[in-house]
Simulated scan of single mutants.
Amino acid sequence: MGQSQPLKRWPVLVVEDEPILRLDALAMVESAGFEPVEALSSADAIQILQERLDIRLVYMDLDMPRSRKGIEIAEAIRKRWPPIEIILTAAYFTRESVELPERAEFYPKPINRGEVMDAMRRLVPDQDGAPA
């Protein structure tokens, strides 16, 4: 039998400024079968996206008072990196109260982990480039 290569785990960028919520989101991303990459702020997220060309999905909180508005960052990601999928979440916004960038999905907090993990698997291609 030949050696097999380990399956690639696509990286998912998690942008969350609250430490406990960030740790929970990182664990959720890993449970969904992806490599979690953490960003503490929107500026951190942009820097990571500039350096890591393998990011396929951004999971981001819209409620980040210490940085640029989350929706502005999501719009900037959509314009600068159009292939990247975006999942947005917020406790103080509703789907109807924000104009989402094209192809962005929104999940209110507290999130349904199973629903978000299913969305991640649906949005991110597997290692062969086919939908997961």
Rank of each mutant, 00 (worst) to 15 (best):
Met120Cys: 09
Glu72Asp: 15
Ala104Cys: 06
Ile84Gly: 02
Arg122Gly: 03
Glu105His: 14
Glu115Trp: 02
Asp54Ile: 11
Arg80Leu: 05
Arg121Trp: 07
Pro125Glu: 10
Glu115Gly: 09
Met117Glu: 15
Glu96Trp: 00
Ala39Cys: 07
Asp118Met: 08
Lys69Thr: 05
Ile77Val: 15
Gln47Thr: 13
Arg95Ser: 11
Pro101Asp: 04
Val37Trp: 02
Phe106Ser: 05
Arg80Ser: 06
Pro65Leu: 10
Ile84His: 01
Gly70Val: 06
Glu75Cys: 07
Ser42Glu: 09
Leu88Ser: 13
Met117Arg: 11
Glu96Asp: 14
Gly114Ala: 14
Leu40Met: 12
Val116Asn: 08
Ser97Val: 02
Val116Cys: 08
Met60Ile: 06
Ser41Gly: 13
Met60Ser: 15
Pro36Lys: 00
Tyr107Gly: 02
Phe93Met: 13
Ile87Tyr: 01
Ile84Lys: 01
Ser42Gly: 15
Asn112Ser: 13
Met64Tyr: 11
Trp81Gln: 03
Pro83Leu: 01
Val58Gln: 09
Ile86Ala: 08
Leu40Glu: 14
Asp44Tyr: 10
Val37Met: 11
Gln50Arg: 14
Arg113Cys: 07
Trp81Tyr: 13
Arg78Tyr: 00
Leu100Val: 03
Met117Trp: 00
Arg80Asn: 07
Lys79His: 00
Glu85Gln: 14
Ile71Ser: 03
Arg122Lys: 14
Asp54Glu: 15
Leu49Trp: 06
Ala119Asp: 01
Arg80Lys: 09
Pro125Gln: 10
Met60Asn: 04
